[in-house]
């Protein structure tokens, strides 16, 4: 495993853990989109179906379980915890995320590495991950609130995307048969969407003003 991949995994892990720890500690999820968090939970659940069929390494298995557990915990806190769920911006978090799931499923049925249940679910998880940040973007735009989304969370997710792209480039040039078009293209789309988020975050931070996304 190369250093880019490892750093990508670690920053991804910390982004989820920082969010979970923050919700757990301050008993608030203001500014966090439940829709995005639910989409991430679906992404992990559908991608890691291979936990039951393929063993890669102890590292992979443990990381998959931690990602699944922490993202499900975030959803649990936001839906069920009596204090946390009171702080949820329900009226603002109106992005209809079901309309993202269906197109991703159709795309996965059409474009996949092999037409089997596992492969379709795997492709679906990648397409869904690419667009899962959208409800969070819409919520930010509505509330114009960056105080509650910590700088760390934004920074860690951005670092995760960047390291994974460096990892793909590195592996493409150092390994034989390493080609994953579906992963690369959906990963690139995700990074571009995220870059947009990043740009406006830093812009508003630099000018010391509240976040203004273009309408």
């Amino acid at each position: 495993m190369n250093m880019f991949r490892f750093l990508g995994d670690m920053t991804h892990l910390f982004s989820v853990l920082v969010l979970l720890l923050k919700i757990h500690t301050i008993k608030s999820c203001a500014g966090i989109s439940l829709k995005t968090q639910e989409l991430y939970a679906i992404v992990f659940a559908t991608r890691y179906l291979d936990l039951f069929t393929d063993y890669i390494s102890l590292y992979n298995t443990v990381m998959k379980l931690v990602y699944l557990g922490s993202s499900l915990s975030i959803v649990w806190y936001m839906r069920r915890h009596k204090l946390v769920r009171r702080s949820y911006d329900k009226d603002q978090d109106t992005f209809r995320h079901h309309f993202l799931i269906l197109p991703c499923l159709i795309l996965a049925l059409l474009i996949n590495e092999k037409f089997t249940f596992m492969e379709v679910m795997w492709a679906f998880s990648l397409y869904l991950e690419a667009v899962a940040i959208l409800p969070q973007l819409v919520l930010l735009q509505r509330t114009r609130n960056i105080d509650n989304l910590t700088g760390q969370y934004v920074f860690l997710l951005g670092a995760y995307r960047s390291f994974y792209i460096l990892n793909w480039i590195y592996r493409y040039f150092t390994e034989v048969h390493y080609v994953h078009w579906i992963t690369w293209i959906s990963g690139l789309v995700q990074t571009l969407l995220y870059g947009d988020f990043f740009y406006y975050y830093f812009h508003s931070w630099k000018n010391n003003e509240k976040l203004q996304l273009p309408a």
Binding site: E113, W122, H177, Y178, H180
Partner: peptide
């Protein structure tokens, strides 16, 4: 025959 790369990333 095309060789399939294992899905070893997260």
């Amino acid at each position: 025959k095309e060789q399939k790369h294992p899905k070893d990333e997260l």
